[in-house]
Nucleic acid binder design. Structure first.
Length: 422
DNA sequence: TCTGGGGTCCTAGGACCC
DNA sequence: TCTGGGGTCCTAGGACCC
């Protein structure tokens, strides 16, 4: 049986989520900003047409935004994660064999379906997702994931395709590859794009037909795989079961720069709480944790950054334990006289909960995991932060900014939209 | 005033083992 | 002149993804 894959990709996902609950945003240039309202991370088509790019620092465009009536939103992750779940739920009606690739993309295994029904099936997927979730999607169908990406990209842009393109056994395949810029290929980033173009390879067709040994030598096995997939030979299988994470990290830029150790301690404790929660969600315990602090890399401030790794005697995901260690490390890293911008944690060695290696001289309190579970449950039901450790501080003047955030329409009861009958 | 956050994979080279 | 051979593990750095 031949392998057929469909890539379903949400169009301008974060903007589409905002629009699903706020029709006033329709047909207007809308951008969604990163944490701290710093840079542009999502754009409506109208905003793209105005020249907004990913990563644009928004403060440099303040005048331009005003002149063009661009609507600026802070990001609202509770909403986006929930909408992502809804889209996936609809997709899983079409096949149980699906890989949740990213917040706005899924690969579906359509192997075994009659070739002449693929395009129609793609259309039905698109229609159903849009009807159930108000999120518009594009569908690319092909014999490999990389070709699915190519198909999807064209489906998104082409007026004729109307959002669905099937390149499986298509006579159009070579033309599609020829019109695809080599830099638009999956896994060809800026460095490889430059290198390829310097060597006269400008589009996906030329890349497909380049000598294999040359591609392998210049771009390692990563390049060899893309090339193979372009030739129709699949070497990136669908991951139906997400593999355990190898790293769990959390970082945060402050809304205002921090100078005092006291506030840095609070921020550290906040990161530690967040990290512990993430670890518990992953059912992992951290054995080695790297903690780093950094000043603002932009502007003229004196620069300072330092990192330190701690090894826990017994791997843990207990909030208090993490706070204790992290705060102690940050106290050691802190140097007065600098204005700090960011702090981050990275668990790079972990052990699964349940198979944690004990320690001869460290007694574990069996009540701690129970306490954590109760806290998590309360926070789940009553809202994040209902129960928290005192060390995270009360005022938290340094909290990340989200000044133009939409309501949590789908995840907070008091934010439920209200329908009024006239 | 103002520039995100969270990940993965691959390779080369060093340390170490027998 | 000439200085083994084969293997594993770990790390840092670079490239990429969304």
């Amino acid at each position: 049986m031949e392998y057929v894959v469909a890539l379903v990709d949400c169009n301008n996902f974060y903007v589409s989520c905002e629009r699903a609950f706020n029709p006033r945003l329709d047909k207007k240039p809308v951008v969604v900003l990163s944490n701290n309202d710093g840079i542009v991370i999502a754009r409506s088509n109208e905003a793209k047409a105005l020249g907004f790019t990913m990563g644009d620092p928004v403060f440099l465009k303040r005048d331009f935004i005003k002149e063009n009536n661009v609507i600026v939103m802070s990001s609202n992750y509770p909403l986006y994660f929930d909408m992502c779940d809804r889209v996936r739920e609809v997709l899983s009606l079409f096949t149980p064999k699906l890989e949740k690739y990213s917040i706005d993309e899924c690969f579906l295994d359509l192997s075994g379906m009659p070739v002449d029904e693929l395009t129609g099936y793609g259309r039905r997927i698109k229609e159903m997702v849009e009807r159930c979730t108000e999120i518009s999607v594009s569908v690319g169908i092909a014999g490999t994931k990389v070709l699915g990406k190519v198909a999807n990209k064209i489906a998104k842009k082409s007026v004729k395709a109307k959002g669905v393109l099937n390149l499986f056994k298509s006579p159009y395949l070579e033309r599609a590859l020829a019109q695809t810029d080599v830099g638009d290929l999956w896994f060809v980033g800026p460095a490889y794009e430059r290198m390829l173009k310097e060597n006269g390879i400008n589009n996906a067709l030329e890349f497909r037909d380049a000598p294999e040994h040359w591609v392998r030598a210049k771009m390692t096995v990563v390049g060899a795989r893309i090339q193979s997939e372009l030739r129709g030979v699949s070497c990136l299988p669908l991951e139906l079961v997400p593999p355990a994470k190898k790293m769990v990290g959390t970082a945060q830029g402050f809304g205002v720069l921090i100078e005092s150790l006291e506030e840095l301690r609070e921020a550290a404790a906040t990161r530690a709480s967040e990290e512990a929660l993430k670890l518990r969600k992953e059912k992992q315990c951290v054995k080695e944790l790297t903690i780093w602090i950094q000043t603002n890399p932009f502007g003229n401030d004196p620069q300072f950054g330092e990192a330190q790794t701690v090894v826990f005697p017994v791997a843990t995901n207990d909030t208090s334990t993490l706070i204790r260690y992290v705060v102690a490390v940050v106290e050691g890293l802190y140097k007065p006289g600098y204005r700090y911008k960011r702090i981050g944690l990275n668990a790079d060695k972990m052990e699964p909960e349940g198979t944690v290696q004990g320690h001869l001289f460290v007694a574990e309190d069996p009540r701690r995991p129970v306490l954590m579970r109760v806290i998590d449950q309360l926070n789940e039901v009553k809202g994040a932060g209902t129960i928290r450790m005192a060390a995270v501080g009360i005022n938290q003047r340094w909290l990340t900014k989200f000044e133009k955030q939409s309501p949590h329409y789908t995840t907070r009861i008091r934010d439920l939209p209200i329908a009024r009958v006239p």
